[in-house]
Design a protein around this nucleic acid. Structure first.
Length: 425
DNA sequence: GTGGGGGACTCAGAAACGTACGG
DNA sequence: GCCGTACGTTTCTGAGTCCCCCA
């Protein structure tokens, strides 16, 4: 429960607003007669147009330009360029991280263990928070012993994470080795609460597990840790980011999230190229869109973007089941009539095929609905996926209409990417 | 020199709103 | 043509990240 829940916000008057405009520009006129702005300033280094203080916690609230503005587009582009830059050197950085896992210096070991998780699981950095003023949520650096369960299964060690992340969204995930049995692996792959260690990282995972055993049991002074103690007791987000800056200029924990999200989308989308069912996916706009959304889904799972399941979800499912039963009944009747004397066999066979296709379509729709019930695709599309990957893919595969994946708002926001990327991006 | 907090930005899901569709 | 439902889009504003400055 949020400590400020139930508090009522005060009205913001012009007297609470500070305006920001160029020195040679005419400040906007206050539209309310008898009122005036608190102040007018000329900050050339900032992008906000106005600000006021929140009446509950006194924090700054800014009025910014819209996401579709060229200024925002420019910084969006810079964000994705930084992620691409990371992509070019990520191999070397991972080598440094994995060697740091074995460091005898405690803080170095902690830094690299945390980064290993941030890179693989796209967990946020985890700033310190004042739980008297804000909800008790955590990220990687602020993980507590109570959020981690170490275990073992048939494949080897397991690390289970269970904590509340940003916006009090539950993060539940078990990290484990991929089973050799491919059927079992594929089955587990569909489970959004299980993540596999990357191929070739098995030994590093063993080291990470060893580090975690140490970190959840003892602090550096040898004292046993309580469930409410920090796992990474020598880390803060700023020291972690300082370390990252040594590895690459401008690198922060957040960049890993952007990079891994975009990289995942790219990998998933380009599986279409040599996919054994390529023809099937390319058949219609609907099937191609489904392929895109499946790729987007993988990113949403990685970033833990969830949403509340609709209150009417169960009834919607029941309705779909009912509808399917109706089509099945019709199909059975058609099959029966095929055996009757004097029946127009060709006509009935055609009807049977149509009904079977309808059942298949219906089942697919239900499957998609079930899969996306608690998963939000929009957040990653808006914030983490380099739009140029999508633009290029649409151009490369059957000149797929971009409007199918980017609505009007996104087309405005990503105008810079649409202009820039060709099919070879 | 350093740690903490102020400041400025991005990211987040829910609510509100608009619209298409089918009975 | 009306109405209810579902679903996509837009708006809202809270919740994070991270840099920088100052005590």
């Amino acid at each position: 429960e949020h400590p400020k829940m139930g508090k009522v916000k005060g009205v913001i008057a012009p007297e609470n607003l500070s305006m920001n405009c160029a020195l040679d520009a005419c400040p906007p006129k206050c539209p309310l007669p008898g009122h005036a702005w608190q102040s007018v300033c000329h900050k050339e280094e900032t992008t906000w147009l106005a600000f006021y203080r929140d009446t509950i916690n006194g924090e700054f609230k800014y009025i910014f330009l819209s996401a579709g503005s060229s200024l925002k587009g420019q910084s969006d582009r810079e964000k994705f360029e930084k992620a691409r830059e990371l992509g070019k050197v990520v191999g070397n950085i991972r080598k440094k991280i994995t060697s740091g896992l074995r460091s005898s210096t405690s803080v170095t070991m902690q830094q690299n263990t945390a980064l290993w998780f941030i890179d693989l699981l796209a967990i946020r950095a985890g700033n310190e928070k004042d739980t008297a003023e804000e909800a008790d949520t955590v990220g990687c650096c602020s993980l507590r012993v109570e959020h981690i369960t170490l275990g073992r299964d048939e494949e080897g060690p397991t690390i289970m994470f269970n904590f509340l992340g940003k916006d009090s969204i539950e993060y539940k995930n078990t990290l484990k080795l991929r089973p050799d049995d491919e059927d079992k692996a594929l089955e587990l792959e569909d489970n959004p609460q299980i993540s596999f260690v990357r191929h070739g990282e098995e030994e590093n995972f063993a080291q990470v597990f060893k580090n975690m055993e140490r970190l959840v049991r003892k602090s550096d002074n040898g004292k046993a840790k309580k469930p409410t103690d920090d796992v990474f007791d020598e880390l803060t987000t700023s020291t972690l980011n300082q370390y990252l800056k040594e590895l690459m200029p401008g690198l922060t924990a957040k960049v890993f999230r952007t990079f891994n999200a975009s990289f995942t989308l790219d990998q998933e989308l380009y599986k279409l190229e040599d996919h054994p069912r390529k023809k099937e996916f390319m058949k219609t706009d609907t099937t191609q869109l489904k392929f895109y959304n499946d790729a987007n889904y993988q990113v949403a799972i990685l970033c833990n973007h969830s949403r509340a399941v609709s209150k009417t979800f169960d009834t919607q499912m029941e309705k779909m089941d009912g509808k399917k039963d109706e089509i099945v009944k019709e199909l059975n009747a058609a099959k029966k009539s095929l055996k009757e004397k004097g029946a127009d066999k060709e006509k009935i066979k055609k009807k049977i095929t149509q009904l079977e296709e309808r059942i298949h379509k219906h089942e697919t729709q239900k499957e998609i609905k079930q899969k996306l019930a608690g998963v939000a695709l929009g957040t990653s599309k808006l914030n983490y996926l380099d739009p140029r990957i999508t633009v290029a893919w649409c151009k490369k595969f059957g000149d797929f209409a971009l409007s199918k994946v980017f609505n009007k708002t996104l087309q405005t926001k990503f105008k810079w990417a649409i202009d820039e990327a060709d099919e070879n991006f």
